[in-house]
C-alpha cells in the first residue's frame, strides 16, 4: 500500500460517516442543499476523468446530464417503469452515447475537442426540443415520489451519496489500473503514449464513457427530484461550466479535488447569494479568479502540500508566470 492509498482510505474514513450522518442534523433545505452539492461533486468528479486525468477538456458534459434526466423522464412517465430501472437506463444510455459520440469527437484535440463537445450538447438540446416523446420544448413531468416529505429528502440524498461513492471508488480503481496509467500518459503526451503501444482510442473512449455514465446517473436523480424538466434547464452550458470550475477550483487530476471544489463552490455561492441578492455573481467571479491566480493546482493542493502561506501563493504565481 503506497502513501497515496493510505491518504485516500483516511479520506474515505473521515468523509463517509460525516456524509452519512449529514441529513440527520439539518432541516429539509439543508438536506436538499447537500443533495445538490453531491450532484455537482459527481459531475465534477466525472468531468475529472476525461478532463483532469485524460487531458481532454470537455465543454459538453452537460449532454450526459440532460440525457440521463430525459431517459429517466421518458422511462418513468411514458413507459411507466419504476425509478431503479430508469436510473440504470439513464446511466447506460449516457455511457452508450459517450461511446458513439466519442469515437469521432475524441479524434480532435485541444480547442477543437472543446468546441465539438459544446456543439454536441447544443445539438442534443435542439433534438430533445423537437421530439414528440420528450414533449418538446414545453418540458415533461415525472411521477412524484410518494413518500412522507422528510423521507423523500433522505431518499434523494442517499441515492446521490451512493452514486458519488461509486464514482469515487471507480476513479480510484481506474487510477491503479493499466487503463488509468494509459490515460495519464495520454494527457502528458498522446503521441508518445501511442508509440509505446497504448491503444489511445480505446482508452479515451472508455474514459469518456465512464464520465458520461456517472453524469447521466446524476441527471437521473436530479430529474426525479425536480419532478419536472425542460430542455433549457438540463442542457444548459452553465452546468458544464459549473462542473469545470468546480474541478479546477478543487484540483484537476486528483481524486478528492472535484469533491472539495463542488462543496466549496456550492457553499460560497449559497453564502454570497444569501447576502447579496444581485452582486453575488460579481463577488463569485472575483473569488474564482483569485483562486485560479493563487492556487492554480486547486484547493486540494493546500491540503496535500500542507502549506498556507504567502510564500506558497507567490511560488504559484511565479511557476505559472501570471
Amino acid at each position: 500500500m503506497n502513501k497515496k492509498t493510505v491518504w485516500r482510505i483516511a479520506g474515505f474514513a473521515v468523509l463517509l460517516p460525516a456524509a452519512l450522518l449529514f441529513p440527520l442534523v439539518g432541516n429539509n433545505f439543508i438536506i436538499r442543499f447537500g443533495t445538490d452539492m453531491l450532484m455537482f461533486a459527481i459531475m465534477a468528479s466525472a468531468w475529472n476523468i476525461i478532463g483532469g486525468y485524460t487531458g481532454y477538456a470537455s465543454f459538453g458534459n452537460v449532454v450526459f446530464f440532460g440525457i440521463g434526466a430525459y431517459i429517466t423522464a421518458v422511462v418513468m412517465e411514458k413507459a411507466g417503469l419504476p425509478f431503479w430501472a430508469a436510473y440504470m437506463a439513464a446511466g447506460g444510455g449516457a455511457a452508450l452515447f459517450a461511446v458513439l459520440i466519442g469515437l469521432p469527437v475524441l479524434r480532435l484535440k485541444g480547442h477543437y475537442f472543446a468546441i465539438a463537445t459544446l456543439g454536441v450538447a447544443e445539438a442534443m438540446k435542439a433534438l430533445v426540443q423537437n421530439l414528440k416523446i420528450t414533449e418538446g420544448n414545453a418540458g415533461i413531468y415525472l411521477p412524484m415520489l410518494d413518500m412522507p416529505i422528510r423521507t423523500q429528502y433522505y431518499f434523494f440524498f442517499y441515492i446521490m451519496l451512493a452514486t458519488l461513492i461509486v464514482t469515487l471508488l471507480a476513479t480510484h480503481f481506474l487510477l491503479r489500473s493499466r487503463l488509468g496509467y494509459a490515460l495519464i500518459a495520454i494527457r502528458e503526451d498522446e503521441d508518445a503514449a501511442e508509440s509505446i503501444g497504448i491503444n489511445t482510442t480505446v482508452a479515451k473512449t472508455i474514459a469518456f464513457a465512464l464520465s458520461g455514465l456517472f453524469t447521466g446517473l446524476a441527471g437521473s436523480v436530479h430529474a426525479y427530484q425536480q419532478a419536472f424538466i425542460k430542455p433549457d434547464s438540463v442542457f444548459t452550458v452553465h452546468i458544464t461550466v459549473k462542473m469545470l470550475v468546480m474541478a479546477v477550483f478543487g484540483g484537476m487530476g486528483t481524486l478528492f479535488g472535484p469533491l472539495l471544489g463542488a462543496c466549496s463552490i456550492e457553499v460560497i455561492s449559497e453564502f454570497l447569494s444569501n447576502y447579496f441578492l444581485v452582486a453575488h455573481t460579481l463577488f463569485f467571479g472575483a473569488i474564482v479568479i483569485l483562486a485560479i491566480v493563487f492556487t492554480p493546482r486547486g484547493m486540494i493542493d493546500l491540503f496535500s502540500q500542507r502549506r498556507l502561506s504567502i510564500a506558497y501563493f507567490l511560488q504559484n504565481i511565479r511557476e505559472h508566470r501570471i
Binding site: N27, N28, F29, R32, D36, Q226, S273
Partner: peptide, 22 residues
C-alpha cells in the same frame, strides 16, 4: 422574503425549499 433564482428552475425549487424550511 426574496431570493435570487438566477433564472434557473433547479435553483428556484431549491430556494422554495429554503423559504419553507428555514
Amino acid at each position: 422574503v426574496y431570493y435570487d433564482d438566477k433564472s434557473n428552475p433547479g435553483e428556484s425549487s431549491k430556494l422554495i425549499e429554503k423559504l419553507l424550511a428555514e
